[in-house]
Amino acid sequence: MDFIQDFSKILLSTCRDVLPIIILVAGFQLLVLRQPIPNLRRVVVGGVYVVIGLALFLAGLEKALFPLGKIMANQLSDPTFIYRGGEIAIHAEWRAYGWIYFFAAMIGFATTIAEPSLIAVAYKAHEVSAGTISQWGLRITVAVGVAVGISLGTYRIVTGTPLYLYILIGYMIVTLQTLMAPRSIIPLAYDSGGVTTSTVTVPLVAALGLGLSSTVPGRNPALDGFGLIAFASLFPIIAVLGYAQILQLLVWLKTR
């Protein structure tokens, strides 16, 4: 019973998300373009699938994975777990947080693989590139980028180093890579930064960031809790550009 109630609540909010899109598309079709939508029936059925599918997906995550993931993020960042048996340090000792970095990397990778917007972009890229960009290749590369990014982001929270330094260095790396990477991959690489962080990743990563910044001694959740999502949107760009460069290098080595 509970679940049906949860599900209808999520379904309602998904419908509310879609409402502006429906109004916009219908308004433009009726007032500006003044022509019928091709295959209207199929499009409407597809739209209903998207809404129901997304609501089911979110309801399932709320029920099964989010509570568990959030509890685990809190347990792992709990000082009594981190300094097992030893004294709880007054200043954070970054080496003690090994499991946190590992958990951050794994959960970043796993949630990115399940991210529906990344599935959508990978599907489109595969279609547009006439099959040269493989869906799984792109998704795994992006997921590796998110894993490294979030892991580094938790290290930043533990050490309390300023966020902008990491982002500045990241931007420099992206700029350098852009100069050397094959041109056709650049727009897709930039896009993959934005798509990684939505439905699945944000709730779990936000819980990890806030949990960590409120338990690590000397950290303030207001200043240090944010920023993980920024890492998760920067590192996939580096990963995708890097992957394309490695492929290019391999081809160059072979033809030499």
Partner: peptide, 25 residues
């Protein structure tokens, strides 16, 4: 957890199908 996971799988399946039929076109 198992029922939740089943819902997630069903939802993702529908979502991808709906993308191909509705949102992309």
């Amino acid at each position: 957890v198992l029922t939740g996971a089943l819902f997630v799988v069903a939802g993702l399946t529908l979502f991808v199908q709906g993308l191909e039929m509705g949102l992309f076109p």
